[in-house]
Write a protein that binds this DNA or RNA. Structure first.
Lengths: 204, 204, 204, 204
DNA sequence: CATGAATGAGAGTTCATTCAT
DNA sequence: AATGAATGAACTCTCATTCAT
């Protein structure tokens, strides 16, 4: 009884451990070839014990994805809500996108490579939906920043969502290259190129 | 001998049919949930017969991907080799990217959602490798166009690969949005926005 | 010592509670789909605690059956030992059979539907054996009543066990119908029909 | 192509073999403790092969039950439709009930002991429903015979269904005893007792 | 060539039982 | 005494691949 709180905390902690190790396994072997045995073995518990914390392999997978996405969303929201000018926000957005990529290389990879055929197409739909929603949310935050920029007369008065989309695309592509080339070198030059090209265009 | 040639032609034709139907099946159900039975049934032949044309499910899958990518590469190469100025090429590149998306919606989707866990990770590595190589090749072609533009003094003399990467990113993002929103309406406005923003930037 | 007695009484009482709740659970979900968790939850104690009172799920099940059967046997014995004539006893036998059914609908159902595959077939044999023995004992009691009837010259001097068997069969069948049709209406007419048909036959 | 008919016949035959062997296994070990491995091993084929003929363990089980019940129903219908008097029909009904029991000892046992908790309660409901319906149908056929007897003025003009129920109960009980005691000795005396007691009653 | 019945190695999931606390 | 997290063996069902016909 006294222990209830402690136990609950312990439970949460264990859940986190399962999430963390499962994420590693999924990243290494993908969803379908990661067996519950693999995951349990990686954690060092029995297969049955995994089911104490997650009702199914799919839920476990989904929770990993969700956890990862939540972190990113939080990050973006913080930037939007800062009390700075548009330019600073854009700069930070670019920086943070790279930081997030660096810290979540595995998750990004997992997400990019995510399988469409999870056991029930229902789940896949959800996952797919989550991904799209996440992308949209990310675009929305960026759009908010752009809108601020237009108001501040820093940016042209074109459809802000399109601008956000374009910027997002550029960033994504650089991130992808960075990921595939497993660069760990400084990305400063890339970042300033992105900003420059985005603001000034590339026409001579 | 004459028969042999006929038979060979028949064989090639059948192979194509298998590829085409398997592509449909994979697109609809994904790799893991598409069974050899599904594929055979879709074609209207026996399961064993599929194995006459492809040694394994994975090879069949890989060949579909490869075939799809080859088409895209051909398209890009053609643009590069055209005898026109840089601007026209860029315009066509943008247009063709959307056309390709429209014509290969299923393949793009399949590719975007591709599973990482093919039966042996060897194959997955190859597939992954293929995807990256394809992206790189696509960037290369675009870089060639950009280089021409720099030479023609249309574009700024910045690292052409970076410019190519940026343009490619913008296009990808608009394509993704178009795909997820299943737009079939005219994309003309999007295309001109991309071109404009890319060339002139968005700074006020 | 005093404590010991108290504790023992408490223990017996708890045992009864476990038996009673487990019976409900088994009746609702059957043996295999009733988990020890279900049972523990129904009682409001921990799973481990159930094992303090019963060494295994099967023993728990067996004890429920046994308890139920013992009740029925007691009832029959009482009728036999009453100081009344055969006819009254038969009437009461019929009545009590219906009363027992009414009060133990769940147990009867559970017993009728009892699974043969308890974890070890040994136990099943025992259970099966218990059921047969119970049936036999019931027939024996009824036979005793019939014998009395023969002696009292109320009944024909035919093999009393056969007569008992026949009567028992008729009663069972009416009980089954009553159970399946979930009748709760008065069964008086049924009872008098049974008695009449049994004594006088149905020949015109 | 030519072989299609042959193949189909072979398939049907195999199905029958699976049914027959599965019935043996189920009878011996019950539903839950009969594994698909057990069944496959009993037939001498692989586990997967069983699934070529039956989509699930439950369907296999249900089909066994259904096959058995169909046989019995046919038998009863034939008796009812015969062009004989009521008495002959009743006699034959009694005889055939014993014959059926003798030929389907295992099925009867399986049915009597059938588990309530098949994997989904839906199936159990169906099975239960089938059993009740079968019982009712059997009563109906017998009721038809009784009705004929009333018309022929052989039997008293009481509710024919009740009479049928009573007769059925007597027969069942004698069958149960025969089964449990594994009697194989002649049952002639039992049969004539049943008839006598049923028609004339047991009152002295 | 073509077939499709047969294989057999797993996969995810459940749950009676145990035992450290 | 009481708990409930952990175990691990067992289960049903799947499907890529083979091979006798």
């Amino acid at each position: 009884m006294k222990m209830k709180g402690f136990k609950k905390k312990e439970m949460v902690w264990r859940r986190q451990e399962v999430l963390a190790m499962a994420r590693k396994v999924f990243t290494k072997k993908g969803f379908h070839h990661s067996t519950m045995d693999d995951i349990a073995a990686a954690i060092g518990i029995s297969k049955g014990a995994v089911y104490l914390y997650f009702p199914s392999k799919e839920k476990l997978f989904m929770d990993i994805i969700e956890q990862g996405l939540r972190g990113r969303t939080e990050m973006l929201k913080e930037i939007v809500n800062k009390n700075t000018d548009c330019l600073s926000k854009i700069k930070e957005y670019i920086s943070q996108a790279f930081v997030y990529m660096e810290n979540n290389r595995d998750l990004v990879q997992m997400f990019m490579m995510v399988e469409r055929d999870l056991v029930c197409s229902d789940l896949h739909q959800k996952l797919h939906g989550q991904a799209i929603k996440e992308m949209e949310r990310s675009i929305e935050y960026l759009t908010a920043i752009i809108r601020q920029g237009v108001k501040e007369r820093l940016l042209k008065d074109i459809d802000p969502e399109n601008i956000a989309l374009g910027l997002s695309g550029i960033i994504q592509m650089f991130i992808m290259r960075a990921m595939f080339q497993k660069m760990t070198k400084s990305l400063e030059k890339e970042k300033s190129f992105i900003l420059e090209a985005f603001l000034e265009g590339v026409k001579a």
